[in-house]
Design a protein around this nucleic acid. Structure first.
Length: 380
DNA sequence: GCTGACATTGAGGAGACGGA
DNA sequence: TCCGTCTCCTCAATGTCAGC
């Protein structure tokens, strides 16, 4: 019979597997969410450092052009393995009226990219001007950049590489023989279920691509189909139904005695519904919260001890370039000395991860500090 | 209760540019 | 040449509300 502790064990054990290489890890996980905020490093790097031996910040960007990877949107924006492209594309349009057809500026920009090859967004300014449009976050972006994003979303261009975080696009190869839409929806659902396993059924449904699922009979039908064929296993704990791909073998034994500072978008903590059920408190990502209303910090990293998320940490560089790590705890820090040792080891690993390859460590000594942030309300 | 639509919120880094 | 300023790019998560 499954229990909350069993779920915690699987949530950590299934996700935080360590592989020798980046390619091996990407093959196993299939998808890694991206976020550009560097506090102290982009989310994709913070996620991969927990899963790839010897990983350093920026390794993914450096390896991307040589690995069979794509940037794409699954349940969030991130990096996927290339074989998944045929499940994600062609994307249905919102009106359901046939495949996406670029018009106007989009058609002109697509023609430009097809003619010139790898294209920096800035190089479009000369040809198409610098008209500004409101972006999805209320800010302003170049109209041509927004069009590139649209063409990328619909699979007509791909990200060739990044320069200082800026995406350079090139024409995407055409899709051979598009697959049946129901098969695509099932494969995407299985991918998401694997990344987030064990995942509450409601969370899995909410994460499925809306238009693709609708074309396949609806989100509920996609999940029911996977359960009916035995591709997904299920159990219920506290009235919450959890699902996972049936080929995942349950993790056995005691959780590793280790502290991990996770990315806000790490699969272990991504689903806030599951987070509150498994660990009994509400973690919130507050980069988009007004400073006066923040309780955990601008970019609080969930702090995992063994198989429990017991607090959070904010990392920054002080004026001398030293890494500062400010921790906070829901119920105070564990008293055991081995916790303090494990936290120190994690901070040292973080410092190494942030050190450029072939470069020198910016700071000699990390500076851990206790947080004075308000304690979040436990979930009842 | 579920779903979808919609509004709201910001920091870090790079490059261009102009003045000292 | 240096430095300060400005502009641009990067990214979803979250809460609320309406409709079913």
């Amino acid at each position: 019979m499954a229990s909350l502790s069993w779920l915690r064990r699987q949530a950590v054990g299934w996700s935080l597997v360590r592989n020798a290489s980046l390619a091996e890890t990407m093959d196993r996980v299939g998808f890694v969410q991206a976020d550009p905020i560097r506090a102290p490093a982009p989310a994709q790097d913070l996620i991969l450092r927990q899963r790839v031996s010897g990983y350093r910040a920026g390794d993914l960007d450096r390896a991307y052009p040589t690995l069979p990877l794509e940037e794409d949107y699954v349940y969030a924006y991130g990096f996927v393995t290339r074989p998944l492209r045929r499940f994600l594309h062609p994307r249905p349009t919102d009106d359901g009226d046939g495949p996406y057809q670029p018009r106007g500026l989009a058609a002109e920009v697509l023609a430009f990219v097809r003619e010139h090859g790898v294209t920096h967004p800035r190089s479009l300014w000369e040809a198409f001007g610098r008209t500004r449009v409101v972006n999805g976050w209320g800010g302003q972006s170049a109209a041509t950049t927004r069009v590139l994003e649209e063409l990328h979303y619909y699979g007509l261009v791909r990200v060739a590489r990044r320069e200082n975080g800026v995406r350079l696009y090139e024409p995407a190869p055409p899709l051979d023989d598009p697959l049946d839409v129901s098969e695509r929806a099932r494969e995407v659902a299985l991918l998401i279920a694997r990344v987030l396993a064990p995942v509450p059924e409601a969370s899995l449904r909410a994460a499925l691509p809306r238009r693709l699922s609708r074309a396949a009979g609806g989100r509920g039908a996609v999940v029911r189909g996977l359960l009916a064929t035995g591709a997904l296993a299920a159990t219920e704990v506290d009235g919450v139904r959890y699902l996972w791909p049936v080929d995942l073998a349950p993790a056995e034994g005691e959780p590793e005695e280790r502290v991990r500072l996770l990315a806000p978008f790490d699969p272990v903590v991504w689903d806030r519904r599951r987070f509150e059920h498994l660990w009994g408190w509400a973690y919130r990502f507050e980069a988009y919260t007004p400073p006066a209303k923040r309780r955990l910090g601008y970019y609080a990293l969930p702090l995992l001890w063994r198989d429990r998320v017991i607090g959070w940490a904010n990392c920054a560089r002080d004026p001398e370039g030293r890494l500062t790590v400010e921790t906070g705890y829901v119920d105070g820090p564990p008293k055991a000395r081995r916790f303090a040792v494990a936290l120190g080891a994690e901070i040292a690993r973080l410092e190494t991860f942030l050190t450029p390859r072939g470069g020198r460590t910016v700071s000699r000594r990390p500076v851990p500090r206790a947080a004075s942030a308000a304690t979040p309300t436990p979930v009842r």
